[in-house]
Every structure is written in C-alpha cells, then in structure tokens.
Simulated scan of single mutants.
Amino acid sequence: MATLLITGAAGRIGSALRPRLLAAGHSLVLFDAREPDPPVGDGERFVPRELHDRAALETAMIGVDTVVHLAGIPTEATWDDIVETNMTGTKDVLEVAAANGVLRVLLASSIHAVGFVAEEHDAPSSVPGDRLPRPDSYYGVSKAVMELLGSLFVDRFEMSIVSARIAAFAPERPHSRRARWVWTSADDLARLVEVTVGLTEPGHHVVWATSRNSGSQVDLTAGERIGFRPVDDAAAVLSDEEFAAMPDEEMRWLGGSMATQPLGEPAP
C-alpha cells in the first residue's frame, strides 16, 4: 500500500476520498489550512499550512509515494487570486514533489478547462478526455495551466502525472441536471487515485474523471488506456422524476453557468 499526500484534504473532495483511501489500506498525509472533519485518525498525519508554505510542503512530502493535489480555489475568482493559488500553488507542489523523488501525481483539473465546448446530448462520447483546452473562465484557464504544468514536469523529470478533469462531483448521488451527464462519484474518483498509485511508466495523462453516466458526451477512452474504468452511473441513482423536478440550468456548454458569469467574479 502507498502513502498519499492529499493537498486540500479538508475540502469536499478530500473529505470524501479520505475514508475510501484508508479503507483501501493507504496511509494519508493531510495538507490544509483548515482542520479536517472528521478529525485525523489512525493512518493519517496532518500538516496544517497554506499551500504557499514551501517548508511545510517539504515536511508533508516526507515518506510520500503519490500526491493527490486538490488544493485551490474551486470556482471563479479574481485573476490575481487564481494565479497565486491555482497556478503558482500547483507549480510549487510539483517542484517539491520532483525534488523529493515523488514521481506520481494526480492533479485535480476540471471540466471548466474545456467548459466552452458545446453540450450536445445527442452526441454521446464525443468529447475525448484529452481534448485541447477551451476554458470558460479564469478558473478554467488555471486548470488548463495545471495540465500544461503536468506535461512540463513529466518531460523534465520523467514523472507519472494524471490530469483529472473532474466534473459535477457529489459523493453519493448527483444533485443537478447537468450532473445527469457529467457526475463524478467519490467511489469512481477513488478508483482513479488507485490507478495513479499504480502507474510505473513516465507519462502525462489528461482524462475525464467522471462516472460512467449513460448517454454522456464525455469519452472515457483516455482514462481506460491507463486502467481507469468507472462504474457508477447517474441514471442508476437519479430517477426520471427526480431529474424533472430539478431547476433548469445553463445547458449550452460543458461548463454550464460558469460560461456566462462575469470573468473574475464568483457565482452569486
């Protein structure tokens, strides 16, 4: 089993992954400015620092096999904040990982890196996981930059990096209309972490980190090439009646409403 460093471990995704990765037998190093909830338990170590604290990153990296980089601003924000946290923060994590010989990394990219691709629900499996970026926001730009940093560090340091385009993450079941096609379950994301832990050859893999949702526009082939085979399906846990009762959403682009809100301003 591996020792995993999770940055942003107190966030929604980190909190959902923790019990799943512990149950799989891994040891965890939790890195976040906030205390994790539930509190740190057996098999876990907590480093309470901000992402820009290089000394703390060095400490957190001790004994680590794989990094799961989740930390960052999770939505639209000002350009300066996005650059400092999402772009420079990712660069720092990769620099410290490479310097410490930690060569396997999962980067939490996003559907918003390709958020201005048109949604076409009559064209299933039409958007490959490694499609060129078409961001919908400054946030989306930061995720495209994250992917480019992944490519750079693979080429420079022969690392194994997965840039995981996470979509509508919800641990147990989807909570929106768009998630009917782009839901990411916690179990399937944990499966992608396991795939990353098992990588042995250098390479950069840009993949859809979504579940296997019926009729989805996303093409899971890029992930399948490295052994990622999600199994959950939004259609199996969301009835037609529940879907019909959900509020309408922006459905013209993969990025949903992020593609229409003002640049640099968080959603209301």
Rank of each mutant, 00 (worst) to 15 (best):
S125G: 12
I13H: 04
A234K: 01
F153Q: 06
R54A: 15
G198M: 04
V206T: 15
M258W: 15
V67K: 06
T7H: 10
V162G: 04
G43F: 09
V231K: 03
L57W: 06
A55Y: 05
S160Q: 15
W208R: 00
N213H: 12
E119F: 02
S163N: 13
P36A: 05
L189K: 10
M61I: 09
A164P: 09
K143Y: 12
V127M: 00
L94Y: 06
G11Q: 08
P262A: 06
R49G: 04
K91L: 15
R45V: 15
T196Y: 00
T59I: 10
L30T: 08
E194R: 02
V127N: 03
E194N: 05
G198P: 04
V68H: 10
V96L: 03
R180L: 02
D240F: 08
P202S: 01
D37V: 14
A245Q: 11
V145R: 08
V231P: 00
N100Y: 00
L148W: 14
P202F: 02
M246A: 05
D232L: 01
D248C: 10
G140L: 13
H52Q: 14
V114R: 03
P135T: 14
A99K: 11
L189I: 12
V195W: 08
I161Q: 12
L70P: 05
S239M: 05
G41P: 12
P174Q: 04
G150H: 11
G25K: 02
V40K: 06
G264W: 07
G227L: 03
L21K: 02
S15L: 13
G264E: 12
P39I: 12
L4P: 01
G63P: 02
V83M: 11
P247L: 11
D42I: 07
S211M: 13
H175V: 13
G215Y: 00
L57V: 11
L238V: 13
Y139V: 09
L148S: 13
M251Q: 14
D233M: 01
I166G: 05
L30N: 06
L106Q: 11
P36E: 08
P38V: 09
G264V: 10
A267H: 13
L107N: 13
L152V: 15
A77Q: 10
W183P: 01
A60K: 11
S110T: 15
A170L: 03
A113N: 09
R173K: 15
P247H: 14
G150S: 07
G264F: 04
K143L: 10
D92I: 11
F31L: 12
D122E: 14
G101T: 09
W183C: 02
P39Q: 06
W253P: 01
S110R: 12
G227S: 09
G255F: 12
V105M: 01
F169L: 03
V182N: 04
